[in-house]
Design a protein around this nucleic acid. Structure first.
Lengths: 254, 254
DNA sequence: GTAGACGTTTGATCTACGTCAAAGCATCGA
DNA sequence: TCGATGCTTTGACGTAGATCAAACGTCTAC
């Protein structure tokens, strides 16, 4: 079992054959096919990434895509002016790196927001295996298609007011977290990112994020305590997203 | 030679075997492989679309991706509020429909801005052929990867000022038109879209698009005559895009 | 020609959100 | 315990671009 130079500093998690069997991300992960015996990536292996450590950086050569097993990762680019734009937050089960398949090198940076574990899937064997397995090919195309649709969704987001963006963001996070954790009931979001990072994702100033969250809190739609946001009224949040941008909370919360 | 029900109203252009041979879009088109004998799509065929006619609509089932041979096409979605958001303008050689591969149905509408000709590439045979041809698979993945990067570019665009967006839009259009027409020298853009459509693409009001164009014109960077914009000073336009947003034209044009 | 429909341009005004500033509040190491 | 550091919150103010309104091409149909 060896590592490429690019990640030689990483700690091995578990690259044994049956590894995918008990993985909670199997459904959405490309590598679940390994357990199914459909394809066996010989050097698929894991890596743990510490908080603040980069998984890859823009400009680096690409050798693999990553599947997030646990933790949280953000991808971002840095403008000439120096300020950062966050392109995506990733939760367990997400595949990171579709954008750069067959581009040769990464177009953005990826960094862990909290300690994370990822699976490496070498690009070469992934693409080669697609020739053998129609199922894998379909999963790959579906994953890339979803990434395209996610980005189209973000473009739509740019048209919304600050309040609508925040509401939509909270709902999206809840939906994604529900995928791995117990879905119904709770709706308590563990946000791994800061207000500033939410802002750099939604294209809002930190202050606007903060103000909007307090407004939603005071309207009774959410509850904010340290290291978590509870969605008290997801339906109202939905209404805010849908509503015409004519002061929402006041109209909706009633 | 038959058509699916979805496009039975369309006129046949040319579905003969050697058709790709003389096609100007061969380089960027997936179907160019047909001429190379690498793969032969049995029912790949053409269709002409009139100005204002839809190629497909959101919600419709997907049977194929399209390659634009001539003309211009826009894709858009309509918000609940009724206003339209344009997701992309397509020029000859572009592949339309990557986003919906393996999604089952279209997520957006596609309509011709001027009379257009497209090639249909049935999805099923496209995906199947990827198993046979590594080259085709790579082209497909590359195309989807580029679409992802195009969307990431649009997200970055949203951070720019109106003037920067317009400048970048003009440069992008020039680059894309240069791909098929004679590239150097001219820089005369034939814009198939209205000011309003540019605005609904860049997320700007029609008035802002108009005002910004006149400002660029008065600064001597572009020349506007009926049905065309000439880029007199692409370098200055580039500088505008790169510059910090502190009133650009005045600083740059000097 | 001329009427009508559209697109464009220009001006005046309004507003959501950014920016600047300063004061809370956690968390962590010594 | 106490700074030190970094995140969050709140307030005051400024501005880019939206919106409203109206005049001005330009193209097509008759």
């Amino acid at each position: 079992m060896t590592f490429t130079a690019a990640i030689e500093s990483a700690a091995v998690i578990d690259a044994a054959a049956g590894r995918c069997a008990g993985c909670s991300t199997r459904e959405s992960c490309l590598g679940g096919l390994k357990a199914a015996g459909v394809c066996g990536f010989s050097d698929s292996s894991g890596r743990s990434v510490e908080r603040g450590q980069h998984l890859f950086r823009a400009g680096e050569a690409i050798h693999c895509v990553f599947v997030l097993r646990s933790g949280a990762i953000k991808t971002y680019v840095t403008a000439a002016s120096g300020d950062e734009q966050i392109l995506g937050f990733y939760s367990p089960g997400d595949v990171i790196g579709y954008d750069s398949i067959s581009a040769g090198k990464h177009s953005r940076n990826a960094v862990a927001l909290v300690p994370a574990e990822v699976c490496r899937i070498p690009l070469e064997s992934l693409v080669q295996s697609c020739a053998q397995s129609a199922d894998l090919l379909n999963r790959l195309l579906a994953g890339m298609g979803q990434e395209i649709q996610r980005l189209q969704g973000m473009l739509k987001m740019e048209r919304l007011t600050a309040e609508q963006r925040i509401a939509l963001f909270l709902l999206n996070q809840a939906r994604r977290q529900g995928r791995t954790e117990g879905s119904a009931g709770g709706y308590v979001l563990q946000l791994a990112m800061t207000r500033g990072e939410i802002g750099r994702f939604l294209d809002l100033a930190t202050e606007t994020v903060s103000r909007t969250l307090t407004r939603l809190k005071e309207a009774g739609l959410i509850q904010i305590d340290r290291s978590g946001i509870r969605l008290l009224n997801p339906t109202a949040l939905h209404r805010i997203v849908q509503s015409q941008p004519v002061n929402s909370v006041e109209r909706i919360a009633a």
